[in-house]
Design a protein around this nucleic acid. Sequence first.
DNA 1: GACAAGTTATTGTAGAAGCAAGTATACTCG
DNA 2: CGAGTATACTTGCTTCTACAATAACTTGTC
Lengths: 151, 151
Amino acid sequence: MIQPSACPSGDEKVQLFALLLETNARLARQLGLELEAACGMPLAWFEVLLQLRQAPEGRLKMNQVADAIVHSTGGTTRLVDRLEVAGLVERRSCPNDRRATYVAITPAGDTRLDHALAVHLDYLERHLGARLSGGERETLAALLEKINTAP
Amino acid sequence: MIQPSACPSGDEKVQLFALLLETNARLARQLGLELEAACGMPLAWFEVLLQLRQAPEGRLKMNQVADAIVHSTGGTTRLVDRLEVAGLVERRSCPNDRRATYVAITPAGDTRLDHALAVHLDYLERHLGARLSGGERETLAALLEKINTAP
DNA sequence: GACAAGTTATTGTAGAAGCAAGTATACTCG
DNA sequence: CGAGTATACTTGCTTCTACAATAACTTGTC
């Protein structure tokens, strides 16, 4: 034990949190670099496209995108702007609610996402697949889900 | 299953990765807000101070700080600049290697860190403590360690 | 000892994200 | 119906971070 018990910086939860932060940062950084190098696509773009593909009809409202990727709405507006300029995504008006706008993945976006997914899967195989068994990955997913449940 | 098997976006590892990203982003954002509100301290400052306290003699070299918090060295230079202006940290020359500079936590930094840790522990109790058992936290930590091991 | 190659930190510049304010649309209730 | 409130997005501004180039120093080799 590095720190005496009077000092809470050695607390088990503190360590766990720090570990989570670090693991995530390393994975995200590495994947981001590989994605950028291989596809010219920032990780944030990939996240958006993936969320759109998984959504019913391949589209989400702006605020749903923001929530899914945990960005502010302002940041999401600009992010979608860039994706739209790149032609990977398009805005569509929402007939029921004229305040809202849908973000839909385009065919070009679909193609680019396939390419990015190939890179991503290769990356995951090397990092998650090689280091964790299938059972371990399931366990990890279950634990993260538990943390992620709304308060 | 939402997507047919031909589409790898539903792949188990892809989902796991997305979940990791999301969980981390939510926790970091929430903690960052609470820390900022209660202590006027950004999460990045907290991370640096915590790493310094845990280091032997309460100091690290710049590049060790950068690695520990997963920042670029350029970004770390500026981050330490701000911490130094705030008086929470100080730079010290390294006698053995005059290229390197130590970053050491100051008494003021120690005090602020204690305050921030109180907020942090309260936060962790609510989010990790309440949602995961001690055994689950251990398991999670072990799995993250496995991922985190260098290639 | 001196040159080459590698390491460590800083700086210039650009891009991305957040917050807060602003605009437009929808909902609620008297 | 109309005033007031809530929601959805955008925009202005600021801050933070990364990348690349640079400067200072160390190490290895001849």
